[in-house]
Design a protein around this nucleic acid. Structure first.
Length: 471
DNA sequence: TGGGGTTAT
DNA sequence: ATAACCC
C-alpha cells in the first residue's frame, strides 16, 4: 500500500455545503439522506456496496483460451446460422452480436467461426468465475453465464475498520468514476464506494491471473446501478458510480427497454400508454401506472426509473435445473426419439457430476407455424423413485425407462397420428434434491438406503472446497 | 434469433 | 403449464 500526505484533499471544488444540500434534495438511492432516516436502526447503515462483474465476449474468450491461435484473428462463435458473440477484433470489423452468419461473413470475410452449440466448456468456466468471486464474499448472484453480482457491503465495512485515518484521506479510486465526478473524501458513501472499487479491481485481477479472463466491473449502491455503470467503459475496464451521478446515468438510457427488468412485453405495454423515455416513466402519475399494471409491478418499475432498486443480491448456489436443447426440424416420432435420446444422454452425464438427483423431468417443444415469437409448450412429470435411486451409478438402466417417459410426454403434446412440424426439442431435469433432505430421526431417514448405511458413493457436491472426505 | 437460465402467476 | 424476465 502506498502512503501519502495527510492533507484532506478536496478532490473537486471543495464546495461541501453545496454538495450536501444538493444531495438532500435529490430523490436518490436508498441510503442517501431522506425522509425515512429516523426509521433506520442506530449504528446500521442501509447503504450497500454492490459490484457487477461482466466478462468480455465470454464464449469468444473461452474459445481463444482453448485455441490461442485464434487470439489475434477476428473470431465469431456460431450457433446454427447465428454468430451469437464475437471478439473485439471482429467487432472492429463490423460484426455484431446475434448477427446472421451470412451478414457477418459479408461484413467481414476473414471472420473465423467456431461452433458454440455445446455449452459444456462455457458452463464450466462460468462456474469457475462464480466460485472465484465467492472466495471474496459468499453472496454472489449469477446472471446468465457471464455476469455476477457480489454484495461487498460487509467486506467494505471490515476494510474501513482496518484503515488508518491518514490512509483514509489518501484513498483514491481504482478505475473510472462515472461522469468524472470528483470524490469528496469526507463523504462516507464516497469512501465506501472507493473501497468497493479496489475490491472490484482485485476481483478482475484474480480472474485474469487464475483463469485468464478479462471483464468489466461496475460498483454502485444497488444492483441496477452497478449493472448499468459496469458497461460504461467497455472492454476490460471498471467504473464506480457516486450517488450524485445516478440521475445522469439513468437518463443516459435512450429508452425504458434499456432498463434491466423492463423487457419486451412491458416496454410495449408502456409505450401504448405513451411512456417511452426514462423521464416519461419517472413523471407518469403513479396512480395511473398502478391501475394499469397493478400496484406491485407499477411501484417496482417506477422505482427502477429513478435508479432505485432494493432487490437483494441473492446467492445463486448450485443450479435449480439442467437442460439441453437443440433447434432442428422434426416431423416424425422417430426423429424426435433419436434427438431425445441424445439430449438425455448428455443430461445424465451432467446430473451425475452434480451429485444431486432430479425428481422431475420435463419435455419442451416448439412448433413450426405462425411465427408467434417464443411459443414453447411443455409437459412435465415426477421421475419414479425407483429410477431416481438408480441415477448416478451406471445410468444405462435408467436410459430406457426415461426415454419411455419422455415419449409419453411427447405424445401427450403432439398428436403423432397427424402431420406435425417441430423446430425445437428440449429436455430439462429439475426439482433437484441433495438426497440428504431426509432428516435424521425421521421415518424417511431410515427408509432412505443411502443415508442409514455407511456406504457413500464418492459423489461430488457442487463445490469441491465444501466437499469433505466422507469415504 | 441460440442455448441456456430464473422467478412469478 | 405458461409467461415474463435475464444473458
Amino acid at each position: 500500500m502506498e502512503k501519502r500526505g495527510v492533507e484532506p484533499q478536496e478532490a473537486g471544488g471543495g464546495d461541501d455545503e453545496e454538495a450536501d444540500s444538493t444531495r438532500a434534495m435529490e430523490r436518490a438511492e436508498a441510503g442517501a439522506p431522506g425522509v425515512h432516516d429516523e426509521l433506520e436502526p442506530a449504528g446500521s447503515s442501509s447503504c450497500r456496496v454492490i459490484v457487477h462483474v461482466d466478462l468480455d465476449c465470454f464464449y469468444a474468450q473461452v474459445e481463444m483460451i482453448s485455441n490461442p491461435e485464434l487470439k489475434d484473428k477476428p473470431l465469431g462463435v456460431q450457433q446454427k446460422y447465428l454468430v451469437v458473440t464475437c471478439n473485439y477484433e471482429a467487432r472492429k470489423l463490423g460484426v455484431k452480436k446475434l448477427m446472421s452468419v451470412r451478414d457477418a461473413k459479408e461484413k467481414c470475410p476473414q471472420l473465423v467461426l467456431v461452433n458454440g452449440e455445446d455449452l459444456t466448456r462455457y458452463r464450466e468456466m462460468s462456474y469457475k468465475v462464480t466460485e472465484l468471486l465467492e472466495e471474496f464474499s459468499p453472496v454472489v448472484e449469477r446472471l446468465g453465464f457471464d455476469e455476477n453480482f457480489v454484495d461487498l457491503t460487509e467486506m467494505v465495512e471490515k476494510r474501513l475498520e482496518q484503515l488508518q485515518s491518514d490512509e483514509l484521506s489518501a484513498l483514491t479510486v481504482s478505475g473510472h468514476v462515472y461522469n468524472n465526478q470528483s470524490v469528496n473524501p469526507r463523504d462516507t458513501l464516497h469512501i465506501r464506494l472507493l473501497v468497493g472499487s479496489h475490491i472490484a479491481a482485485e476481483m478482475r485481477e484474480a480472474m485474469y491471473q487464475q483463469l485468464g479472463l478479462t471483464g468489466c466491473a461496475g460498483v454502485a449502491s444497488n444492483k441496477l446501478l452497478a449493472k448499468l455503470v459496469s458497461g460504461v467503459f467497455k472492454p476490460n475496464q471498471q467504473t464506480v458510480l457516486l450517488p450524485e451521478s445516478s440521475q445522469d446515468l439513468i437518463h443516459s438510457l435512450n429508452h425504458i427497454k434499456e432498463i434491466p427488468g423492463i423487457g419486451y412485453k412491458m416496454a410495449k405495454r408502456l409505450e401504448a400508454l405513451g411512456i417511452s423515455s426514462v423521464r416519461d416513466l419517472q413523471t407518469v402519475s403513479s396512480k395511473i401506472l398502478e391501475k394499469e399494471l397493478g400496484i406491485s409491478v407499477a411501484q417496482r418499475i417506477q422505482k427502477l426509473s429513478f435508479g432505485e432498486d432494493d432487490s437483494p443480491v441473492t446467492p445463486s448456489g448450485p443450479p435449480q435445473s439442467f437442460s439441453e436443447e437443440d433447434s432442428f426440424r422434426c416431423s416424425s416420432e422417430v426423429e424426435a426419439k433419436t434427438k431425445i435420446e441424445e439430449l438425455l444422454a448428455s443430461l445424465l452425464n451432467r446430473v451425475c457430476q452434480d451429485g444431486r438427483k432430479p425428481h422431475t423431468i420435463r419435455l419442451v417443444i416448439r412448433r413450426y407455424s405462425s411465427e408467434k415469437l417464443c411459443n414453447r409448450e411443455s409437459r412435465q412429470c415426477p421421475i419414479p423413485s425407483h429410477i431416481v435411486q438408480k441415477l448416478g451409478a451406471g445410468n444405462y438402466d435408467v436410459m430406457a425407462p426415461m426415454v419411455d417417459i419422455l415419449m409419453k410426454l411427447f405424445r401427450n403434446m403432439v398428436n403423432v397420428k397427424m402431420p406435425f412440424h417441430l423446430t425445437l426439442l428440449s429436455v430439462c431435469f429439475c426439482n433437484l434434491k441433495s438426497r440428504n433432505t431426509a432428516k435424521k430421526g425421521t421415518i424417511d431417514y431410515y427408509l432412505t438406503p443411502s443415508l442409514s448405511t455407511t456406504s457413500h458413493t464418492g459423489k461430488r457436491s457442487f463445490k469441491m472446497k465444501d466437499c469433505h472426505m466422507e469415504d
